[in-house]
Structure formats: C-alpha cells, structure tokens
C-alpha cells in the first residue's frame, strides 16, 4: 500500500501534465469562442513545458548554475528547449489573437457557430 502511494506521488507530475494536456485539447475542440480556443492551445503548450522539465530534475541537485557548494545540477538542456518554446508560444498566441481581431472586424463576431452561419463556403 505504501509503495503504491509512493509510486503515485512520484508520477503525480505526469498525471497533472496529462490532465492539463487533455483539458487544453477539450477546450480547443469543444469551445466555440476563438479567444477561448487560443487559451486552450496555451494550456496545451504549458503542459508540454511540464512534461519536459519534470524529468530534468534531480533530487538534491540544484539549478544549473555553478557554485562551490554543489556538485549535482539538474539537466540544463530541457530548460533551454522550454525557454525557446515559451517565447515562440507567445509569438504564435499574438499572431492568433491578431487573426481573431481581423475576424471580428470582418464578421462582427468571434463565435465559431455564427461565423459559419455567415459564411456559407465554410460549411
């Protein structure tokens, strides 16, 4: 029993990562508001940060900055990759939101259903 709890605690990060991932997926598929869809996409992206950073951690290690007092550092490579991903993520979010503003100007709404009903070609 105690081992099962420990096993669960040690994989808790991954369970939450998966929960955030499918929540983002759900928002993107199920919600019609375009801004909400983009926020769902951000949730999905953020779960990927967690997925990369979790295995980089070492117990009793420290942040990857040299210091006399430590000889174990967490893995710097996922940190670098996720720094890139965060910046690219906000760039794509801004581009998507600019498209949403244009859609609002062209159709007068940002709800998917109403856009489809105003645009017969999209059916």
């Amino acid at each position: 029993m105690k081992e099962a709890i420990l096993e669960f605690a040690q994989h808790y990060n991954y369970f939450i990562t998966i929960f955030l991932m499918i929540s983002g997926l759900f928002i993107v598929i199920a919600r019609g508001n375009l801004i909400k869809k983009l926020i769902g996409l951000s949730l999905f992206q953020t779960s990927v940060y967690l997925l990369y950073l979790t295995p980089a951690k070492i117990h009793n290690g420290t942040a990857p900055i040299y210091d006399y007092a430590y000889d174990t550092y967490s893995n710097p490579l996922p940190h670098v990759l996720m720094l890139t991903a965060i910046v690219v993520g906000v760039a794509t979010l801004a581009l998507g939101l600019a498209l949403v503003v244009r859609i609002k100007e062209a159709y007068g709404t940002i709800e998917e259903d109403e856009i489809f009903s105003k645009d017969p070609e999209a059916e």
Binding site: L53, K57, G61, T62, A63, P64, H79, M82, I86, V87
Partner: peptide, 15 residues
C-alpha cells in the same frame, strides 16, 4: 521547485 529558474522567470514575465 523543478530547479528551472531561468524558465520560471521567463514564464512569469512572458506567460
């Protein structure tokens, strides 16, 4: 907590 201090700063400022 995951020792990713650079990423944490970026996430707090950008995210």
């Amino acid at each position: 907590i995951l020792d990713a201090v650079d990423v944490a700063m970026t996430e707090a400022s950008v995210g």
